[in-house]
């Protein structure tokens, strides 16, 4: 049994490629999937700005319709496949907002929040599952293990349901 090393916690952050390079590579890989290509087209057509920030935990954030953030801890950097799938998810949300499907105003009844925000999340997860499946089917991306990564991201049950749904047409 391997013991954890507490000194991990004290690292000053690991070196990573430049933000612009990580974003460009992620968009390049996304464009290899039909649904990912739609997101890349959306980024180009709507001039979506993508930024990487340092945050304690991995997070994606859409504070404005044309501005998306991907954040993660430099001591615990996310894998390239996780980065790509997180980007796909937040870009899908930006697409929803651009289409006028927005989260309810804070003062709307809770039931309306549950209905709309849950539907938006479900759609986002459907989209990530679709992109992950399309990329996973390509030999060039075998090493990225997109479906395994999706499960690690907490979409395990959703992916099983998605695959079942796709299989049954």
């Amino acid at each position: 049994m391997a013991s954890k090393d507490l000194n991990d916690v004290l690292l000053p952050g690991r070196p990573l490629p430049a933000d612009s390079l990580m974003i460009a590579k992620a968009l390049e890989i996304l464009s290899a999937s039909p649904h990912g290509q739609q997101l890349v087209n959306f980024v180009e057509k709507k001039n979506i700005v993508i930024k990487i920030v340092r945050t304690p935990k991995a997070v994606s954030y859409l504070p404005e319709k044309k501005l998306v953030y991907i954040g993660f801890n430099r001591n615990n950097a996310i894998s390239p496949s996780c980065f790509i799938l997180m980007l796909a998810g937040i870009l899908r949300e930006a697409q929803q907002e651009a289409a006028g499907i927005e989260h309810p105003d804070l003062h709307a009844p809770l039931e309306k929040h549950k209905e709309i925000s849950m539907a938006k999340h479900e759609d986002k997860v459907w989209y990530i599952c679709t992109v992950a499946t399309e990329l996973n089917d390509q030999r060039a991306f075998t090493e990225y293990k997109f479906l395994d990564e999706l499960r690690k991201m907490g979409h395990n049950e959703a992916l099983d349901l998605y695959l079942l749904q796709e299989r049954n047409g």
Binding site: Q96, A99, I101, M118, A119, K120, E122, D123, V125, W126, Y127, C129, A158, L161, Y162, L164, Q165
Partner: peptide
């Protein structure tokens, strides 16, 4: 526009 996953709820 929004897609569904049967059983997601």
């Amino acid at each position: 526009m929004l897609q569904k996953i049967k059983g997601f709820g």
